[in-house]
Amino acid sequence: MEMFTVWWEYGFMRNAFFAILIITPLFALLGTMIVNNKMAFFSDALGHCALTGIAVGVVLGISDTSLSMVLFAVVFALLLNKISKKSAASTDTIISVFSSCSIAVGLAILSKGGNFSKYSGLLVGDILSITGREIFYLILIFAATLGFWFFAFNKLNAVSLNRTLAKSRGINVNLIENLFAVFLALIVMLSIKWVGILIINALLILPAASSRNIAVNMREYHFFSIVFSLFCGMLGLIISYFTNVATGPMIVILASVIYFCTYFYGKKIG
């Protein structure tokens, strides 16, 4: 069928294809833990801080703003983790404060002189921004995340069930949580340019949430999450190519459809 081959001739589509092949399983994996730990708002805030990361890069005169974006996001994630544990206010308040504060700083710097339009592409994402180098980074992070998952998943799971219990088992809870936050920050930052700030969180949450609607154990939970994520990513890319819509939103629309289907199915089988 012509539909599956014509787009392969274009370099940018091949790049996008590989990026999606690598990134969607990662999103699915991390998403399961985010949904379990009720961290959806945390990852959302992380996405928003990309603006500030770029702004910091612009101020410091770094030519590759991806670097400043990643560094800033890691610092931001660790800081957020630390403060939300210490403070008396509830976590969502803290995250909200951090998130709005960093957006404000980012917007203030980037909109100076009325130039924000240059960066507005970040909001909805631009698939042409995926380059060979980005794919290389993605492969690295893919391997690292798999390793992390392999060694730390049980610990992560224990922490997500009950922190005190996990501590009593000799698990370094802080380290595990911080590592998770750092991985999350890296993956979000490496894909935000083509997914877009406004919807990157949906890509993390939706496959896992859909999977949770129907899965009965951890293995199924992961399996369905990855299947949904890959499916939406690939199909979204192809549809967006033929219909001239931004790719990120298309993927998220598909993921939402899957979420609602599984939601009603899960309710029915109870």
Partner: peptide, 24 residues
């Protein structure tokens, strides 16, 4: 359940590809 997932995904796939083909 697996049947449902397979059916759901194929329906979405066919529907969206069909609409896209119609559109283009």
């Amino acid at each position: 359940k697996y049947g449902f997932v397979a059916a759901m995904l194929s329906v979405i796939l066919l529907l969206s590809l069909g609409l896209t083909a119609l559109y283009t």
